[in-house]
Simulated assay, not measured.
Amino acid sequence: MEILFDNMPNPFVYFVPIFALLILGEAYISYREDKELYNFRDSIASTWVGLGAALFNTLTKAYQIGLFFVFYKLFEPLRVTYLGYENMGWAWWAWVLCLVGDDFNFYWHHRFCHTVRIFWAAHIVHHSSEKFNLGTAFRNGWTIFLYKPFYWIWLPILGFNPVMIALCMSFNSIYQFFLHSTLVPKIPVFGQIFNTPWVHQVHHACNVEYLDRNHGGILIIWDRMFGTYMDKDKYLETKFGVLHPPVKHDPITLNFHEFSDIWKDVKQSSTWHERLMYVFGPPGWSPDGSRKTSKQLQAELQAQYVAQLQQAEVNAPRQNTPQLIAE
């Protein structure tokens, strides 16, 4: 039986009181143990950005679900003809497949948000906080809802009901709220398959070693499969935020400063290749190398490590070893 869009439940709403209590609890622990997990200006910025994101998500929800329904119905005759079924239905296994497909989708959507500058411009607001706490989970970009659904189109094409897809996306968002905390220790067995706050700290860090790592939503296996996984080094001090933070922390600046920077770069470019790279190339790309991408920064850091090791070997005192005298 089809679930009507008008009657579609929003599970996120039921979790809001839980989210609020957990944030208050984390803030209290921070205050009691002097951990400085929160500060007033950052929390206000996260609150306003989060409220704006909730509004934009609500305003674009009909567009997102409608887009899914278009492809769901458009490909229905092709599914019947070539695949032998009308839709995936509502069985438990369909929910499992949809959840896994949604999480796979999220991984690639999230990875491209870090490797394509125009998408990074929409996503950077989520990483702009220098504090990593549960409130950061609500610090989402306002423009991301305009293009995000296009990554999910293959799911309605295969016959997953658009309402099921939307609910799975909500479940994924709910799970990710709990990832934004430094108070949760490493979880050895669970963390081999599922994303945890321990490794999500790596994703939010601006340490060069940690850039563009751990993009998964619920599952961390995608990062392990596609070479973007990195465990948190307990000996490396984690620094949160972005390499080039915005000069202001009002919600408008936080959401649109990178778009403004892209426009400035495009205007001063002399070739179409440069213009396209400034928009669709990796963040940090520049034609003259005056700015660096994350891969370039990591390559430079790796070269420094190798040079230091080589120098240490040269400077290390040679140990006296006994000579073997032939009889």
Rank of each mutant, 00 (worst) to 15 (best):
F56R: 08
F56Q: 08
F56S: 09
F56G: 04
F56C: 11
N57D: 10
N57M: 12
N57F: 12
N57P: 00
N57E: 10
N57G: 15
T58F: 10
T58C: 01
L59R: 08
L59V: 12
L59E: 09
T60Y: 13
T60L: 15
T60W: 13
T60H: 09
K61A: 13
K61I: 11
A62I: 13
A62W: 14
A62E: 09
Y63A: 14
Y63F: 15
Y63E: 05
Y63H: 08
Y63R: 00
Y63K: 00
Q64D: 05
I65N: 04
G66F: 08
G66Y: 07
G66T: 06
G66P: 10
G66W: 09
L67V: 00
L67T: 14
F68A: 00
F68G: 01
F68M: 12
F69I: 05
F69L: 11
F69V: 09
F69Y: 12
V70L: 14
V70P: 00
V70R: 05
F71C: 06
F71E: 02
F71S: 03
Y72F: 15
Y72E: 08
Y72T: 06
Y72I: 04
Y72N: 03
K73F: 12
K73Y: 13
K73E: 13
K73Q: 11
L74I: 04
L74M: 13
L74A: 15
L74F: 15
L74H: 09
L74V: 07
E76G: 02
E76N: 06
E76Q: 14
E76Y: 01
P77E: 02
P77I: 01
P77Y: 06
P77W: 02
P77F: 03
L78C: 02
R79H: 06
R79P: 02
R79V: 07
R79E: 06
V80H: 03
V80N: 05
V80L: 14
V80C: 02
V80Q: 13
T81F: 08
T81N: 05
Y82F: 15
Y82H: 13
Y82M: 06
Y82A: 02
Y82S: 04
L83F: 14
L83K: 07
L83A: 13
L83Q: 08
L83N: 04
L83E: 02
G84M: 10
G84L: 01
Y85S: 04
Y85V: 02
Y85D: 03
E86S: 14
E86G: 03
E86A: 11
N87A: 10
N87W: 04
N87T: 11
N87K: 09
N87E: 08
M88W: 12
M88F: 10
M88T: 05
M88A: 12
G89P: 12
G89L: 01
G89M: 00
W90Q: 07
W90N: 11
W90R: 05
W90G: 03
W90I: 08
W90P: 04
W90S: 08
W90L: 07
A91H: 10
A91S: 13
A91W: 04
A91E: 11
W92D: 03
W92Q: 02
W93R: 03
W93F: 13
W93Y: 15
A94L: 07
W95G: 03
W95F: 12
W95I: 12
W95P: 01
V96L: 15
V96P: 00
V96C: 07
L97I: 12
L97V: 13
L97T: 07
C98K: 01
C98Q: 01
C98S: 10
